[in-house]
């Protein structure tokens, strides 16, 4: 009798849990082209950084490109929209001229307003941020490929913006402020 009671408790315990299907972050890329994406036939999935593959991106990274100074602050967060729970990366940044004039500073933006966020971890090992810049409606948008250099022992990142350039009600393209070719930044 006790055994049955125990079994019942266990069964009910399972039923009460929201069925959670976990996909490790590094495997998400395999689902991108699938018809139902990561959802498959599930109602709820967790894209979880089980193996801490995102940890190495986190931190402040600084470098120089075309006479401008860049500081990238990458952090890790989790969000849940009721269908997908997801560990992902956010990228905040400052862009300054050589004499210190600030061109852009997104360091204080809240998570949901950040211009640059994940994205997914590509097969190349790069984290691909979706970028929707300050003037995204005038073409400042695309993917920022971000790779921690294995050769640097985790101290350097190379990143660049692959411009998509989608326009929304805007007829004149705004010049890009993000590097459109590889920029090497060093961990601070």
């Amino acid at each position: 009798m006790k055994k049955i009671f125990f079994l019942l408790i266990v069964v009910f315990g399972f039923l009460n849990c929201k069925a959670q299907h976990i996909i490790p972050t590094e495997e998400v890329v395999n689902y991108l082209g699938e018809e139902n994406g990561v959802m498959g036939d599930k109602n709820y999935v967790y894209l979880k950084d089980v193996n801490n593959v995102l940890g190495k991106f986190v931190g402040d990274w600084a470098g120089n490109y075309n006479g401008k100074n860049y500081l990238f602050r990458i952090s890790k967060a989790t969000r849940d929209d009721g269908e997908i729970k997801e560990d992902y990366l956010l990228m905040r940044y400052t862009i300054t001229t050589s004499n210190g004039t600030v061109i852009e500073n997104t360091l204080s933006l809240p998570d949901n307003k950040v211009h640059t966020e994940g994205g997914y971890l590509a097969k190349s090992g790069s984290y691909v941020f979706n970028y929707f810049g300050k003037d995204s409606d005038c073409g400042q948008n695309g993917s920022i490929f971000t790779r921690v250099l294995e050769s640097s022992n985790g101290t350097k990142i190379k990143l660049y913006l692959e411009v998509e350039g989608e326009m929304w009600d805007c007829t004149t393209e705004v010049p890009q402020t993000m590097p459109t070719d590889w920029l090497e930044v060093t961990k601070q």
């Binding site: 018809e35 994406g37 959802m39 894209l47 994205g119 979706n130 995204s136 948008n141």
Partner: peptide, 14 residues
């Protein structure tokens, strides 16, 4: 609108 859509469209049934 553009940002949320792209993020979700990458992962869900389009």
């Amino acid at each position: 609108l553009a940002k949320d859509f792209k993020r979700l469209a990458q992962k869900k049934s389009k």
